[in-house]
């Protein structure tokens, strides 16, 4: 059964899903801050488009709400928030050195294969379009996790986190045609709050560590003696 035998809409779904996967790879290799944020917004747009397409094909009108949620959060609000914050923190033109970019991309390829392997066990329950898109959603989630692990900048970690969340949301859209509405709203609310909290944290981190590079966050560790705390000496207070 080839892809050409599928309907036009289903082909489009596969196309946009694979484009979303491509954006995950671009994010993995993108060292500069602004393009990273924009790529993330593009991924959100692609996933929102897939949601709309799935809504049309399968006649699930409530998926339009999911698509609207994805669009508002992942394309407008969060990228705008990150853009504003990185502007305020003077990081627009920051580029971080990515250690072993080739290795990381190859690792990403491995994760995609792993995604397909994992989804093997559940494909017998669904059609061809879903079969591919489930694997893609798992891959997007895993690539987001890889981004979080591999990057040293707190902003990139947040983008990885949000990308993971997108992957999961995407999985829900294509495998089950969306979660119940109350759950989707709850998840979206949580993500929004998380995004705002991340913003608050950027300022705290910069104030405490002077940078958003997580390598510097090494005060709490099992290996070292903890540093002396700036406590008042004993007996100062009554």
């Amino acid at each position: 059964m080839g892809i050409a035998t599928l309907g036009l809409y289903n082909q489009a779904i596969i196309l946009f899903a694979s484009l979303a996967l491509l954006t995950s790879f671009i994010m993995l290799a993108q060292a500069r801050m602004l393009p990273l944020i924009f790529t993330f917004a593009w991924q959100g747009l692609l996933l929102a488009t897939v949601s709309v397409l799935v809504a049309i094909v399968t006649n699930h009108p409530h998926l339009y709400i999911s698509a609207a949620l994805t669009f508002t959060l992942k394309v407008v609000l969060i990228p705008w928030l990150l853009y504003r914050l990185s502007g305020k923190l003077n990081m627009h033109y920051d580029a971080e050195a990515i250690a072993h970019p080739t290795l990381m991309l190859l690792g990403g390829v491995g994760l995609v294969i792993f995604g397909y392997h994992v989804s093997q066990s559940i494909v017998h329950l669904s059609g061809l379009a879903t079969r591919n898109t489930i694997a893609v959603s798992i891959a997007i989630e895993l690539l987001g996790m890889l981004l979080m692990c591999a990057r040293k900048s707190a902003v990139a970690q947040v983008i990885g986190f949000m990308s993971m969340e997108s992957g999961i949301f995407f999985a829900a859209v294509i495998s089950t045609y969306g979660m119940p509405l109350i759950v989707e709203l709850g998840v979206a609310f949580d993500i929004l709050v998380a995004a705002i909290l991340f913003g608050v944290f950027f300022f705290h981190l910069r104030d405490s560590f002077g940078s958003l590079n997580v390598v510097r966050f090494n005060r709490l560790s099992e290996a070292n003696e903890p540093m002396p705390l700036p406590e008042p000496p004993a007996g100062e207070h009554p």
Partner: peptide, 15 residues
Amino acid sequence: YRTPESIEAAWKYFI
């Protein structure tokens, strides 16, 4: 408490 340790702990917790 906004000490560097507590902020690092909270970041770790969050992520």
